[in-house]
């Protein structure tokens, strides 16, 4: 499979996973969204050189991944795919921030190492939480949830279209590359061939997007994302889920839970 076909497969896989029937899948989309949003905000709010304080937060993505029955390998593979950008910044920290920060006997650990570890940990936590949010709630139900509020309706429509048209763009690109590869005798795309392909690719994508738009308009679409079924009500479970996690995240942010736990394990020596 080509890179494009893999990307398309991944998108389909996320939607398939979102159709699960676990406790996490049955949560109100708003509960899932709020818990994830608070989590990402708390993770981002930690200072640059914080590592141990972030550790207890691993519980949240681990909890959702396990309870939602999401394949760990799939999530880790997706994390790797989007990691190069963050790895670049982490490496830059390693090389450019050399001031000593932590002392182990005669050795000093440079600040760059700590900030790189913190950056990678925050990236891992945030992206895995976001992935499990999409893989348990689904993107379109989330758009439908947003569309319940008049204020967010245009935003929901734009998100929905970006999502659908990204599918379409990937499908067209994958077809074009497959058609090229079938007749290219095993060699990849040359730079000068990109110029010939980009025009037909854009035109085909536009034509299909136009057809899709016409199909929507023909069925009464007027620019507003439609909501399917009666609005889902919040249940006690949803409220309990959001409030429990919010309390835990705030606690983890205000109290060094790792140090506290370490102290308890070591018999209150700290």
């Amino acid at each position: 499979m080509s890179v494009l076909e893999n990307a398309l497969y991944d998108l389909h896989r996320l939607e398939d996973l979102a159709a699960g029937e676990t406790f996490i899948h049955r949560l109100h989309p708003g509960a899932n969204f709020l818990a994830t949003a608070v989590f990402v905000t708390v993770v981002a709010s930690f200072p640059r050189y914080e590592v141990t304080g972030l550790m207890p937060l691993v519980v949240y993505p681990a909890f959702t991944l396990l309870l939602a029955d999401l394949p760990l390998g799939f999530v880790l593979a997706r994390l790797l795919v989007v990691s190069p950008f963050v790895l670049f910044f982490a490496l830059a920290d390693l090389f450019f921030i050399r001031a000593p920060l932590v002392r182990f006997g005669p050795f000093f650990l440079p600040a760059g190492w700590i900030s790189a570890a913190s950056l990678l940990l925050r990236f891992f936590l945030s992206v895995s939480a976001a992935l499990s949010f999409v893989a348990t709630g689904g993107f379109v139900p989330f758009c439908a949830f947003l569309a319940r509020w008049r204020l967010f309706r245009p935003f929901a429509s734009v998100l929905f279209f970006v999502y659908r048209y990204s599918y379409l763009t990937l499908e067209e690109a994958a077809r074009l590359v497959r058609a090229h590869n079938l007749r290219a005798g095993g060699r990849g795309l040359r730079l000068r061939e990109w110029g010939h392909l980009i025009g037909p690719f854009l035109w085909r994508t536009y034509a299909r997007a136009h057809c899709l738009y016409l199909a929507m308009v023909a069925r009464g679409f007027n620019g507003v994302f439609p909501s399917f079924g009666p609005p889902r009500k919040w249940t006690g479970k949803d409220l309990l889920y959001v409030s429990t996690w919010t309390i835990f995240f705030l606690l983890a942010r205000c109290v060094d839970l790792a140090a506290l736990l370490g102290g308890l394990v070591l018999g209150g020596t700290r």
């Binding site: 939607e15 979102a18 689904g138 057809c211 199909a215 929507m216 023909a218 009464g220 679409f221």
Partner: peptide
């Protein structure tokens, strides 16, 4: 008037069959 397009892939865009079929009545 209801139009069924030549290529169903040009017409189907919702995540499930239920939502796809519900699209027109919901909009109406």
């Amino acid at each position: 008037v209801g139009l069924v397009f030549q290529d169903p892939d040009d017409q189907l865009f919702m995540p499930t069959v239920f939502e796809e079929v519900a699209f027109a009545p919901v909009n109406m």
